[in-house]
Amino acid sequence: MNKIVKLAFADFKIIFRDPSLRSFIFLPILLFALMVWAVPALVDRYDFLIPYQPLFLVIAVIENTQMFCFISTMVLIDEKETDVAKVYGVVPLTKTEYMFSRFLIPYLFTLLLNVIMFTVQPLFDISFGTGVLISSLAALVVPVYVLAINSLVQNRMQGMVYVKAFNLVVLAPIAAFFVPGKMQHLFGVLPTHWIFKSVENASLGLPNFITLGIGFVFFSFLIWFTSRRFIKRHFV
């Protein structure tokens, strides 16, 4: 546990000392302000926005995950670029422990942000348990995103390109919102679709056990797959 705390603490020091990463810490505050004050005010003023309220919540949930997706991606790319990753290959820390220590805090932080988001958002009445379940699923975006990009890139420049591409992949299933009937599940090949559907179902008061279940299985597979690739490439 000491190792995990030390590493997480070091990560926070790095983040706060890097101006390009530090600013991302404040992203959730902006997001909360938009969801608590701006969106309800807009919906009150413009009736045509009422059907799109679940969409606002979907975007808020996924944007909450993006903070640590970007920060952790950059921290690990920096680790690779400066060859610090090689040092982790020769310390008494298993690769599983390494990944656990790198992702536990970002995962819990992201989960907490979304639990708060579900609690404070004034648009829908979503139970605490449902909020926790969806937040647990949504927070899995962080390790998958970070491991996938870090399995592919060698430096920050490449990293920025892949961040843009991955953001597109993460957000693409929003389009399903505009597709009628079961056709919208064509977006199910993209894992975030199952998060979006879970949020949408919860906001409409529909059951979401199936979408959550598919989501957890999908993300578990992706974590297994990306972590294997990551371990092969990161420490050499």
Binding site: A10, K13, I14, R17, D18, D78, E79, T82, D83, V84, K86, V87
Partner: peptide, 10 residues
């Protein structure tokens, strides 16, 4: 290691 590898911000 052959080349320096440290966290530069620390």
């Amino acid at each position: 290691f052959e080349l320096p590898n440290h966290y530069l911000k620390l």
